[in-house]
Design a binder for these strands. Structure first.
Lengths: 225, 225
DNA sequence: TATCGTGACATTGGATACAATGTGGTGTAG
DNA sequence: CTACACCACATTGTATCCAATGTCACGATA
């Protein structure tokens, strides 16, 4: 994944951070789960030192919440916080797309088309989520950004559990507009119509946010629990 | 500072992170400076463990760059990277202002007017930079954001050395428009004209970026040195 | 019975010690 | 004189150990 936040080498803390991040994003640890440092050091081998560094890392990424002398939990968001992240995405992802669009290769455009089609066939939640992520990150593949790419990845990660919960909840109903927007985005990129592509993307994120906001039951009721 | 990134308690790693962050922002360590873990542990007391956690923290904030088994340096930006940060700010700070504006108190509005006036009198670079930061962050004081506030603070911090270099370079010439924009922003907030306030802020950031881009000599010529 | 204090236990934060890795300088060969 | 290899040193990464803090259950008292 080009937008990966850690292109660093193989220190133990990075390995653990990567592994734990994948576990959280994969839904293995749901929001609010307690994280015990000893458990992680046992699971990944090694002492608690790199585990703590990994937890600090994930905390600044917004995936983990740590309280001193008390412990660490998988971060959970209130609806207002999740909505805030989506509104932020709505403003910056079109910018990232702008940086990327003119450098997209023919191959990537074809992959985008393929991904959009495969998503329409996808019935299983995890596959759907993964294809969606791959699709959007592929549209950003042309960017050589220093800050913006990793930032967008962070915002995606922080809201991943709620996309999962929402997708699971609504099943495959009402996804028509969702897929239409993806195809519109691909077409706009093919045509080189950057202005349109930015607008489609902004509306795509916005509509998803509005749908999420119809389901307050998915979110943590209390802030910073 | 309401937008502080670390509202945590008093663990040693947080103390060190806060101290080092202030040192970097204050210009004590210029971009590219090597950071030795032992030096920090001697300066702040304690062992290298909390120092390392602080460095990891500042790395994800974009203030420090670490390479495994090699060392840590104060982050430096190329002009393209700095420009990217400014373009990101141009998109999200108006959003943060939107979240904040309707909750600004009368007292804060008066402080804003006062700060804008004091900046016009300010001749010394450090004071100017500090007042500028205080001014903008005061406009965001009404926001109760979870992600966006700290994010904006991070983007400010990452570009602070280059604002300092630019301000030092150009002296107090050509600041007229800068101050005018501040006063326009205050007026728009007084009037409750949110649309105008957003636009003024976006243009303010944009113009600053364009001015910075006239001085490539301020930046690191090679990416990720 | 409910509430508050108290103690043992679980867990985290940090210091010291050691291993692993990178760096820079010196010497030698070409 | 230059370039390369090698070795000592500096610095970072990690493990183990101990101290500090929070949690939870139990019991005493109102």
């Amino acid at each position: 994944m080009t937008l990966s936040q850690t292109q660093r080498d193989g220190t133990a803390s990075e390995r653990i951070a990567d592994g734990l991040r994948q576990s959280i994003l994969g839904g293995e640890y749901p929001p609010g789960s307690r994280i015990i440092q000893d458990d992680l050091s046992a699971r990944y081998g090694g002492s608690r030192i790199p585990v703590r560094e990994a937890l600090h890392q994930l905390e600044t990424e917004g995936l983990v919440r740590m309280v001193a002398n008390t412990g660490a939990w998988v971060a959970s968001l209130t609806m207002a916080e999740c909505s805030e992240v989506y509104q932020t995405r709505e403003r910056i992802e079109p910018l990232l797309l702008r940086f990327s669009a003119e450098h997209l290769t023919k191959e990537t455009l074809e992959q985008l088309d393929d991904l959009a089609n495969r998503m329409e066939q996808s019935a299983e939640v995890e596959e759907f989520l993964e294809l969606d992520r791959q699709f959007h990150f592929a549209t950003y593949r042309g960017s050589t950004t220093h800050t913006l790419g990793p930032l967008v990845a962070r915002l995606w990660n922080a809201t991943q559990p709620y996309r999962r919960a929402y997708t699971t909840l609504v099943g495959s109903r009402n996804r028509r507009i969702f897929h239409d927007e993806h195809h519109m985005l691909v077409t706009a990129l093919y045509d080189g119509d950057l202005e349109l592509a930015e607008q489609v993307l902004a509306l795509h994120i916005r509509r998803t946010r509005l749908h999420l906001e119809r389901h307050p039951e998915l979110f943590d009721p209390t802030p910073t629990q």
